[in-house]
Each structure stands twice: as C-alpha cells, then as structure tokens.
Amino acid sequence: MTNDVEKRWNDPAAFRGAALYVVAVVLVAAVWLVVALTVGSGGFTWTFGVTVILLCGGIGALVQAYRVWKRAGTWPIWQGAGWFLFALMLASLGLAT
C-alpha cells in the first residue's frame, strides 16, 4: 500500500489517461480560439470561451481526481492535470481583452 505523501506513484495507464485528457481539452480550446480569431466580430465573447473551456476541463480533471481517490488510485496525476488546466485558464484570461 502506498501512502499519499510518498512520491512513488507508478501508474502509466493513469498518466496516459490524464495526459490525453489535457491534450483533448487544450485542442478544443485551440480550435475555439482559431474560430474566435476567424470570426472577428464580438471578440470578447468568443475569446472568453477559451477561458471557459479550460475552466471546465480543470474542474473535470479535479472531479476525476476525487473519483480516483475514492477508489484508492493514483489521484495526484489527475490533480496535476487539473491544476495545469487552471494555470492555462489564468493565462488565457489575457486573450479576452
């Protein structure tokens, strides 16, 4: 049994799942940004969508971390994915101006 405070998490499947989730959320946000820049009218509303997509992705990753924690799995991988998406969300706030 691995204690939560130990740093010996080795779960390639969980890492792969979290990485694919992050890539998918970032790709959706990037496609939304390209559409926002192409449309051009109502720029604030369209670019704010990127922030909302990343926020929802981060919340989804933290929900998944909680679900994995309840199953006694390697939840810190999903928590890291959630915080990474939140950091991208904060960086994307500059797009909406």
Rank of each mutant, 00 (worst) to 15 (best):
G17A: 15
V68W: 04
G82E: 08
T38C: 11
I53S: 01
L55F: 15
V28I: 08
R16E: 14
G17E: 15
L90Q: 10
L27V: 14
Y21D: 02
R16I: 05
E6K: 03
V5Y: 12
G40K: 12
K70R: 15
I53N: 06
L54G: 06
C56V: 14
G80W: 03
V25R: 05
L85M: 13
V22A: 09
M1P: 06
I53G: 03
C56I: 14
V34A: 15
G73D: 05
F48G: 07
A36N: 09
Y66G: 07
W46M: 12
R8M: 03
V5P: 00
R8A: 10
A72V: 05
T38G: 13
A96M: 13
V23E: 11
A13L: 11
W32V: 08
L95P: 02
G60E: 06
L54I: 07
F48T: 08
A81Q: 02
A81R: 02
V39N: 01
L20S: 13
G42R: 07
I59A: 15
Y21N: 00
G60R: 04
G57H: 04
L55I: 08
K7A: 09
M89R: 04
R8E: 04
V52C: 07
G82V: 01
I77D: 00
T74W: 02
K70I: 03
Y21V: 00
S92Y: 02
E6S: 14
W46I: 01
W78Q: 05
A14V: 03
L54F: 09
V28H: 00
W83T: 11
L55Y: 10
V23I: 14
R71V: 00
R71A: 15
G60W: 06
W75L: 02
T38W: 15
V22K: 07
V34N: 10
G42S: 09
D4Q: 10
Q79D: 06
L90H: 02
L95Y: 08
S92W: 01
A65K: 06
G49Q: 03
D4E: 11
A18Q: 12
A13K: 12
L88M: 14
V31I: 07
V22W: 05
D11Q: 08
A72E: 06
R8T: 07
A87L: 15
L55N: 04
R71K: 13
A18D: 02
A81D: 06
R67K: 01
W69T: 01
V28M: 05
K7M: 11
G43D: 01
A18C: 15
R71Y: 00
F44V: 13
C56F: 15
